[in-house]
Simulated assay, not measured.
Amino acid sequence: MRQAIAIILSLAVLALFIGLGTWQVQRLKWKEGVLAEIDARIAADPVSLPDSPDKARDTYLPVMVSGQFGDGTLRVLVSTKQVGAGYRLISPLLTDQGAILIDRGFVRVSHEMPPLPQGPVTIEGNLHWPNDRLSSTPENDVSGNTWFARDIDQMADALGTQPVFVITRQMTPPEPRVLPLPVTSEGVPNRHLEYAGTWFLLALTWSMMTLALLWRKKRRNT
């Protein structure tokens, strides 16, 4: 009787592990669909900047804005796989709809700060509300102009703009010394394949442990 109960409980646990792994596979397919939608949205034709951009509605929205850069550039410390450590350059763009924040792109830490472009510019990019700050992220050194996270409200206060943030995909005329870092879906977490593998590995391990236990009991009884 005890052995039968143990087998039933073992099968129930095995079914739970397999079920959770299958659920994560289903979540993986769902997340891949979400990422495909984000990629399509990012790459869509740009539109005019909305009068009142909304995070829930307008994240990743491709826009085209024109204006002239105002004074000031914030340096956000980042690291890229291809180039290494450097800064994202955040500057105010004066438009007919007011001043907004522009992520101009990337320069190496070892390079001098490039001057702001002079005269009218047109920027094609994406509205974004980045979530750079983690529990381990230091506070921004505003006085020393070294930022560790793109905190939009804080940047807007520092540069005297609206809390509207556009990440450059292309600027006309271009800045030869600044490398644009366009918005992509790479920062959207997708660990469902890893989770599925973990649950299926647990299912396999549990099966092997159960079979080993049954084999040992069988040997004792013979």
Rank of each mutant, 00 (worst) to 15 (best):
A44C: 12
A44P: 06
A44L: 11
D45Q: 15
D45S: 15
P46T: 09
P46Q: 10
P46Y: 11
P46W: 11
P46C: 07
P46I: 08
V47N: 11
V47P: 08
V47L: 15
V47R: 15
V47E: 13
S48C: 11
L49K: 04
L49C: 06
L49E: 02
L49S: 05
L49N: 03
L49Q: 05
L49H: 01
P50Q: 07
P50K: 04
P50C: 07
P50D: 05
P50N: 10
P50V: 02
D51W: 04
D51T: 14
D51R: 14
D51P: 09
S52D: 13
S52V: 13
S52N: 14
P53S: 06
P53K: 01
P53R: 01
P53L: 04
D54S: 14
D54K: 12
D54Y: 07
K55W: 03
K55L: 08
K55M: 12
K55R: 15
A56C: 05
A56I: 02
A56W: 04
A56K: 12
R57E: 06
R57S: 08
R57Y: 00
R57I: 10
R57G: 04
D58P: 04
D58N: 11
D58L: 08
D58M: 09
D58F: 03
D58Y: 00
T59L: 12
T59R: 14
T59P: 02
T59I: 10
T59V: 09
T59G: 08
Y60C: 00
Y60P: 00
Y60N: 03
Y60S: 00
L61Q: 10
L61F: 05
P62V: 08
P62E: 06
P62L: 09
P62S: 09
P62M: 11
P62G: 09
V63A: 05
V63Q: 03
M64T: 12
M64L: 13
M64H: 04
V65R: 00
V65N: 00
S66T: 12
S66I: 08
S66A: 14
S66G: 14
S66L: 09
G67T: 01
Q68F: 06
Q68G: 07
Q68C: 07
Q68H: 09
Q68P: 00
F69T: 01
F69E: 00
F69Q: 01
F69H: 04
F69K: 04
G70A: 05
G70L: 04
G70K: 03
G70H: 02
G70Y: 00
G70M: 05
D71W: 02
D71H: 10
D71F: 05
G72H: 07
T73S: 07
T73D: 00
T73Y: 01
T73G: 02
T73W: 02
L74E: 10
L74V: 13
L74Y: 09
R75G: 02
R75L: 14
V76N: 05
V76C: 10
V76H: 02
V76K: 01
L77S: 11
L77W: 12
L77A: 15
L77P: 01
V78F: 10
V78I: 15
V78H: 11
V78L: 10
V78D: 09
S79G: 06
S79M: 08
S79K: 11
T80W: 01
K81Y: 03
K81I: 06
Q82I: 03
Q82W: 00
Q82H: 06
Q82K: 13
Q82S: 13
